[in-house]
Nucleic acid binder design. Structure first.
Length: 259
DNA sequence: GTCATTTGACCTTC
DNA sequence: GAAGGTCAAATGAC
């Protein structure tokens, strides 16, 4: 999507000023190159992960088949049939290691806790609070041993609930710039104004991304609207994503979240 | 009274 | 049989 948007930007710049300087052209080309590098890196990461276990490889194979059947899309759903009582060890997951358990925009409900062999701290199990909507997303939180302030979080399944999507829409902004650092933790009726699940550590957006976005908006609100500005309006969020959180684990999760 | 969390039991996988 | 993941009754907070 970023690649297409960058190409679109190049077209708009050419249309806006046919005699545009080579600097503009070079900038658009650079954006396209960046997108290409990101996609290559993500593809390599996915391939490495899927090759670790037979089951993961099988899941990747299913993924590819499903994507092909869907016309090249990248999202997929688990195979049909009754849900497994228990997921296989080493099943596909999106993992990230964070300081704190992070607020990721979803409301999680704890459903279990288990002492794990070789781990000093118990493993915590969460599922999406919108399970009643058929959302089967779960996450597993494990406090690391060597770094007590760090948590290894594994996400399983996709969010199919409406809650997450509508939250973005209601805030009227690109997902990347939603202010999770504020007091608005999900819906008030389900969460009574408290953070979703564990809150130690937490996460708040960097000042640069939040202030930067507002400043850019203020700047461009004063300018005359034109196609280029409309395009940029929809893309400011991407800038803060890449600038603030450019680690592949987090990026993979961001992508899954945005989908 | 309602809802989220806790925790022991049960189920599945290895 | 051990270990990990989930269920569901009990418990506590609001």
């Amino acid at each position: 999507m970023g690649q297409q948007s960058a190409a679109h930007l190049g077209d708009l710049l050419r249309a806006a000023s046919p005699a545009a300087s080579s600097q503009h052209q070079e900038l658009a080309a650079e954006i396209l190159r960046c997108c290409g590098r990101v996609i290559d890196a993500l593809s390599a990461t996915a391939a490495a992960t899927s090759g670790r276990k037979r089951k993961a490889a099988a899941a990747a194979e299913y993924h590819q088949d499903a994507a092909a059947a869907a016309g090249g899309g990248t999202s997929w759903s688990p195979p049909p049939g009754p849900p497994l009582k228990r997921r296989a060890r080493g099943a596909e997951a999106t993992k990230e290691v964070t300081s704190g358990t992070t607020v990721d925009g979803f409301i999680w409900r704890k459903y279990g806790q288990k002492d794990i062999n070789g781990h000093k701290h118990p493993r915590l199990y969460y599922r999406c609070a919108h399970k009643d909507q058929g959302c089967n997303a779960t996450r597993r939180v494990q406090q690391t041993q060597d770094q007590p302030a760090a948590y290894e979080i594994a996400y399983y399944g996709e969010h199919t609930c409406k809650g997450a999507a509508t939250a973005w829409q209601q805030l009227g902004a690109a997902p990347a710039v939603v202010d999770f650092g504020s007091k608005s933790w999900g819906s008030a009726d389900t969460n009574r104004g408290s953070p979703p699940s564990m809150s130690q550590g937490g996460w708040s957006p960097s000042a640069s991304s939040e202030v930067g976005y507002e400043a850019l908006h203020e700047w461009h609100d004063t300018a005359a609207p034109d196609p280029v500005m409309e395009f940029l309006d929809g893309c400011f969020g991407w800038e803060s994503v890449l600038q603030d959180r450019f680690d592949f684990g987090g990026l993979l999760h961001d992508i899954a979240t945005f989908q």
